[in-house]
Amino acid sequence: MFTIVKKERLNPTVTKMVIEAPYVARKAEPGQFIIFRTHEDSERVPLTIADTDRQAGTVTIIYQIVGGSTMELDAMQEGEAICDFVGPLGMATHTEGLKKVAVVGGGVGCAIAYPVTKKLHEQGATVHAVVGFRNKELVILEDEFRAASDRLVMMTDDGSYGEKGLVTAALEKLIQEGNAYDEVIAIGPLVMMKFVCAVTKKYGIKTVVSMNPIMIDGTGMCGGCRLTVGGETKFACVDGPDFDGHLVDFDEAMKRGTMYREFEQHAREASCNLLKKEAN
């Protein structure tokens, strides 16, 4: 069983959990993901790993409560155990040889952008972090990013914190200032990653994105996570989740992501009703 060692609310909809999973912790690298199942009858849900403590044998996940499955997980408390926690899955983010990198994180995607920022920083690369949130209330991991980057640009959609505007504008400004990045790593909503890629393509900067499509097994068996990269079909679970952003067909990925929107809507309502009933 996988015990929840620590649970911390980072903002109204984002939670951090530290989970005892020694086998996963032994091998996990930034960019890899796990699949969890809260209960015996729960869905299998992929989440990219936010942090790892090999000595303590723990893995940190940071999730946004978006549907029935994340609500179920969020109902669990410290000391309780979740049913399944498998990983590390997928390929680690490639960081070798990178000297100067811009890491762009959007919303809860910052949870995944942080470990790679930290790794690059630890290996001596110059790292500029550009992080964006809708508003001040939703900001997460600010101190962590500040400690692991040479420069942190904080953006909010409404200007309630940092600068007002989108991460794409901030990134473009950095590039125009003369920062020559070996690579840009972008992690966040599909639409954000798509537009980051549009900016970097203009300047010919290699850009790596982390894809998080619908998947079941996470080992290559179901093919549900397939996406088109450079005209070829790839499986995010075994070939990714990182891909060359200039080759990813984002429009297709966005469409595929809405496959079960209606079902999820119902599941979310059902979970809400259940929680309300339990509360009464």
């Binding site: 009858d41 079941i216 297709e252 469409k255 496959m259």
Partner: peptide, 28 residues
Amino acid sequence: SLKGVYSANEYLTRINLMKAYQPGSKTP
């Protein structure tokens, strides 16, 4: 890549392993 194209593995895994055939299953 259209929505509604499944591999047989995915379709059957949803139904069998994840019990999507049972009413109230959490797997769509």
